[in-house]
Amino acid sequence: MSKLGKKTLEIAITQIGVEEIPRNSNAGPAVEKYLKSVGLGKGYAWCMAFMYWCTKEASLQLGIENPLFKTAGVLAMYNKKKDLVVTDPQPGDIFIMDFGKGQGHTGIVEKVDKNIIYTIEGNTNNDGSREGYGVFKRQRKTNTIKAFLRL
């Protein structure tokens, strides 16, 4: 795991339990902080903004440049950062899911166990939705993932 991946994961872990206020609003102090990091106000889907914010904070703490593209778009990030794409997930990698019609979802890998990744994700819920209301730990099968971005 890279230093940046490790620090990004550490920061993501500190956000577990953050929720939208009110629920299902894409708003609230923490959510708006994530969205602001990519230049957006409240009301937008924020899973990628969450990952961008975590990586930005980690980069600042380490005194290095954030390698991510400033966007809240999961697939926009994937398309702009193909140089970071890897196929073998490891802790600290950002996963990319593609649901078609421009809809995606993302989070960070905490642990890998064969074909299961254990993740921390923003804008999800206990059911693993791509449009949830908080930051949660989740499990995903690797065959549902389009790509992994290695920081």
Rank of each mutant, 00 (worst) to 15 (best):
M1D: 11
M1P: 12
S2Y: 08
S2Q: 11
T8E: 07
L9P: 05
I11F: 12
I13M: 14
Q15T: 13
I16L: 07
G17I: 00
E19L: 03
E20W: 03
E20C: 00
P22A: 00
R23P: 10
N26M: 04
N26C: 10
A27V: 02
G28C: 06
G28T: 05
A30G: 03
E32D: 09
E32G: 06
Y34P: 04
Y34E: 01
G39F: 09
G41K: 07
K42D: 01
G43Y: 04
Y44E: 13
A45E: 09
W46T: 02
W46V: 02
W46H: 01
M48A: 13
A49S: 13
M51C: 14
Y52V: 05
Y52W: 08
Y52Q: 03
W53T: 11
C54D: 05
C54R: 06
T55N: 07
T55V: 07
K56T: 14
E57F: 03
S59I: 09
S59E: 04
Q61P: 05
Q61D: 14
L62E: 04
L62Q: 04
I64Y: 11
P67C: 05
P67T: 06
P67Y: 03
L68V: 07
L68R: 07
F69E: 13
K70V: 11
A72T: 03
A72V: 03
A72P: 06
A72R: 09
A76S: 15
M77T: 14
N79Q: 15
K82I: 10
K82P: 07
D83H: 12
V85G: 03
D88W: 11
D88M: 13
P91N: 10
D93Q: 01
I94E: 00
F95D: 01
F99T: 05
K101Q: 12
T106S: 13
I108G: 11
I108R: 11
V109R: 04
V109E: 06
V112I: 11
V112L: 09
V112R: 08
D113N: 12
N115S: 15
Y118F: 13
T119M: 08
I120D: 05
E121A: 10
G122H: 09
N123P: 11
N125I: 02
N126G: 15
D127V: 15
G128D: 07
S129H: 03
R130N: 15
Y133L: 12
G134H: 07
F136H: 15
F136T: 09
K137W: 11
R138A: 15
R138K: 15
R138G: 14
R138I: 10
R140S: 07
T142W: 05
I145D: 00
K146P: 01
A147M: 03
R150V: 00
R150T: 00
L151Q: 13
